[in-house]
Design a binder for these strands. Structure first.
Lengths: 340, 340
DNA sequence: CTGAAAGCGCTTACAG
DNA sequence: CTGAAAGCGCTTACAG
């Protein structure tokens, strides 16, 4: 028998029960891994499932059961699109990896701030068991809105203050930036600038803090700061501004590789040699870093691991696991190339 | 009343029916936009829906109805991850935009070739109404497998020969490459090379064909071809190889911006001035193009539009629309900057 | 440990 | 144009 589309409906739980010689209830128990089932029944069911190629109907499970068997990956469009793209693809891959083999659907949603309301309504309506929110903009109200509606969630990227009880996973941006700035100081540089991210994004502020901390340790001045927005163009503008302000600067920590590309362009056209005149360190170890001119020393973060960890944390929380860390910071490390 | 998670279940169709003073059947008809409903009933239902904030239960609709109210976005991991990342993020945004306001869930799946089988099983099992497959590797068997199982689908990126009846949407890579190569010829360049994509990806072959066509028109030699794999490193290697083979080359069309970055690096270290000695044109107009050194002349494609068009085509097909184009090619255009 | 039965919230012929 | 009723394919107390 085929339906209108030509696809054949698979076997139902009823048929599995008949073949296995047990009731539908028992089949359901085996499939859901409940413990009070005899080994004999369990084996029979497994064989029948195998034989028939049975796969449970998702809609029916969700309707009958008390859980949705689905989680949402929400991308809040606040914050920089440019930073978000490669970041997002990596996170997605991690989420997917972690979900493999579990019968959990991954729903994808995007939300600009003006339609947060609809999204919250949908997510709190029981369509999903929880949500993964990728939100790079620290002041984004979405995480808190979801939290207040009781939707279990994990945020990718540290929220700014005021979201105290929402668990998050983030790269250790502070330490990564500190390593970068220390490296520049170790090279003997005296006038170390930074092109930072926006003030309202935690990722920007954490990288700035790490830079400040390292220079503070070495008693170096921390006056050369320009905020920028994670686009190559803004990186170029920021670099031009810094050169005007401090023609004697001899190093710059750029808070994202993508901005570093713009900065390198400006340094070149100003006639500076890199790293002889100005040493440059980026952040992200993105795919362009190694083929920049010159190849870019940068801080590596593992975005795929970020996605995996978010997913693990959400599912563990849903499963009621005890003693989970409220939040997780993933390690970052310095990758040395020619630019510093 | 709240469930275990603290989320409150919304109103059911029954309550809407009571408030509107009609039967559940009528509410269902109004919500699904059927035509034989009195204006009076329709208004009453709309008011009740508004008043109660009713939103239909997805699982129940799917179970009761004959459609899944969901489509899958499948990313086949065949082909270059590097090219796929920014490409994918743009496609995703387009898909999402096109889905806005329709009650269709977007499921996300990834598949490496070894688990195509499971994926096909899942998708043909009625969990989705159709699939969008992003597959940059022309020889990927997935589109055909899905097609053979009767899953309605649209492929992003032209499949290579042998997938005759699977509808696809692609950028017009041929024309874009032709414009790029013509531009180089118009500049008076005589020894025009190309760093092409892999031979087993349609995107690579189409861009190569366009380059060949333009040079053929102008009676220029088409011997300087190196195949590469869409990574910056391979672009660098290819450029080095070309310089060895033809030290006199005066222009190169690189089939992806990301490879062009590697090529520029090698040209710089070989002492060539760009564009004076060697003119360079890329493809994609990716975010790095404008801040390359020098800024990169390139071919623009609209990846978000690609996602939108794929989605439109799939939904139109599902709705039974007549006279749909089997496939669609989206325009590309030359963006002039300093490198050529 | 197991089965019969109710019920999840919708859609869809069917009869009017 | 409308309503009563059956049914989608599961899960889950309940009773044994």
């Amino acid at each position: 028998m085929t339906d209108g589309t030509g696809r054949r409906p698979g076997p139902r739980i009823e048929e599995v029960a008949r073949v296995a010689g047990v009731s539908k209830s028992t089949v359901s128990r085996v499939i859901n891994g409940e413990q009070y089932v005899s080994a004999r029944a369990r084996d029979a069911v497994h064989r029948a499932v195998e034989l028939l190629g049975y796969s449970p109907n998702h809609a029916a499970r969700t309707l009958a059961g008390s859980k949705a068997n689905a989680i949402a990956l929400v991308v809040s469009e606040q914050g920089s699109r440019v930073l978000a793209d490669p970041f997002f693809a990596g996170v997605l891959r991690g989420v997917h990896t972690e979900l493999t083999g579990r019968r959990i659907q991954l729903l994808l949603m995007m939300s600009a701030s003006h339609d947060h309301h609809d999204l919250v309504g949908y997510l709190s309506g029981g369509h999903v068991d929880g949500a993964l929110v990728v939100s790079l903009h620290g002041a984004d109200p979405l995480p808190r809105m979801l939290h207040d509606c009781g939707v279990p969630l994990v945020v990718g990227g540290r929220p700014l203050a005021g979201n105290g009880d929402v668990p998050f996973v983030d790269s250790d941006n502070f330490t990564g930036a500190m390593l970068a700035a220390r490296h520049l100081a170790d090279l003997g540089r005296q006038r170390i600038a930074t092109i930072a991210g926006p003030k309202d994004m935690a990722v920007g502020m954490d990288r700035l803090s790490g830079w400040r901390r390292a220079l503070g340790e070495r008693r170096l001045p921390t006056d050369l700061v320009v905020h920028s927005d994670f686009t190559p163009e803004s990186g170029a503008r920021a670099m031009a501004g810094l050169l005007t302000r401090a023609p004697d600067l001899d190093a710059v920590f750029v808070a994202a590789d993508i901005m570093a590309l713009g900065a390198l362009q400006v340094l070149h056209s100003s006639g500076r040699r890199i790293p002889e005149d100005v040493a440059v360190v980026g952040f992200d170890d993105s795919v362009m870093a190694a083929t920049a001119v010159p190849p870019l020393t940068t801080v590596r973060q593992d975005v795929e691991q970020l996605g995996r960890t978010m997913t693990w944390r959400l599912l563990a929380g849903l499963a009621g696991e005890e003693g989970l860390p409220p939040s997780v910071l993933l390690p970052t490390s310095l990758v040395l190339r020619a630019s510093a």
